[in-house]
Design a protein around this nucleic acid. Structure first.
Lengths: 200, 200
DNA sequence: ACATTTTTATACTAACTGGTATTTTAAAAT
DNA sequence: ATTTTAAAATACCAGTTAGTATAAAAATGT
């Protein structure tokens, strides 16, 4: 909606590519851990000066916020797309499980899960965004299960609210395990089996 | 086995209480996170000088190692005691779940889980101890499930190896949730329900 | 040409980190 | 009493962190 482009005014033209810096930061935090990479390091890797980064992002909190925001847009977008997809309920669950447990994009885990784990060290803006993404994810899973219940595809004794929290927790666990170099597939399948309706 | 007491020789008598320092470090790491408390801070809180701590523990790795070792001895001991207990299989599972999900001793989570999450920032000795405790835990759960299978109390299609890893992962998840201020009880119950034998 | 505006690059700060060299102190052995 | 041993306290070190003051550069407006 809002454009980043500001009609090029008087001063020296800007060479700093904000999206590029955000991307460098996002990948650094994602692959190496959000507390493992300093501002100095990000600036060096992005090939930009430190004052430029501070002008654009304010402080480390602002940069972490931008990185997480950018991450969430793409990853949460994929989950929402699966939910909105026209497919049967169990396939949607499988697709979400596959996305987190097997897709190579999550080979090193999930930036959100890592930032949540390091929440104590994050700044206030980033903390708030973590909470916001958390509830958006829960909402997404709640929507999925509400769908399933409405269509009768998900009929068991588990409440939608508990199911959504469970799904969220198990996917987070799988992503955490991937970050530790484990293969979470079998464990996640087992965990999600409790959401399956009885064989009836 | 080995005694820490060394016949008091010639020099100035030692006033530093190694067990006390270890305890201060353990609780600091446990409650605030192993990367949140510096050596300076530990020394100040324990009321001892920095060189004394470095003489006793070598470096930060040594102190973290001692803290985790002390923690594991007490907590893993409890789990092993439950397993060795004379009780029926499902009760043992319940007791272990209760220990991690409800006992107030784990109100702030589990030092092992937190150190494992911060493994990248730990020194080599502590890293090795984390791995060692991890496999000891898996072994303990494997033993429990092997028991259950042998007595026929745990008869389902899940392999002992997968079940042990699952139990370990779910308990770790519950402890992680507690560290984040959540109540994991309902989620853990749901997760562990897949280990229950069919109603038959 | 020259002033103005904005961004860039360099160099710096203050606080904190893990770790240590040095001096002081307290005991035992002679 | 004096020497010896070991521990303790103080003060220090080099490196890193987030963040910034200052100056140089590159554009536009007049």
């Amino acid at each position: 909606m809002s454009s980043e482009t500001k009609k090029p005014g008087r001063g020296r033209p800007k060479t700093l590519d904000k999206a590029h810096v955000t991307d460098v930061a996002m990948h650094a935090y994602w692959e190496e851990g959000p507390t493992e990479v300093s501002m100095n390091e990000i600036c060096a890797r992005a090939g930009v000066s430190k004052p430029s980064v501070y002008r654009e992002f304010g402080n480390d909190d602002g940069l972490a916020y931008a990185a997480l925001e950018s991450y969430a847009a793409s990853v949460l977008g994929k989950i929402l797309a699966i939910i909105a997809d026209d497919d049967i309920f169990p396939n949607k669950i499988s697709k979400i499980a596959y996305l987190s447990a097997e897709e190579e994009v999550h080979e090193n885990g999930c930036l959100f899960v890592k930032m949540r784990a390091a929440k104590a060290k994050m700044g206030p803006k980033t903390k708030a965004l973590i909470d916001q993404i958390e509830s958006m994810a829960i909402d997404a899973f709640t929507g999925l299960l509400t769908q399933g219940r409405a269509t009768g595809e998900w009929n068991n004794s588990i409440s939608v609210e508990l199911g959504a929290r469970y799904l969220h927790a198990q996917i987070g666990l799988a992503l955490d395990q991937r970050a530790r170099g484990q293969d979470p597939k079998a464990l996640l399948d087992l965990a999600l089996s409790v959401l399956s309706p009885p064989k009836a």
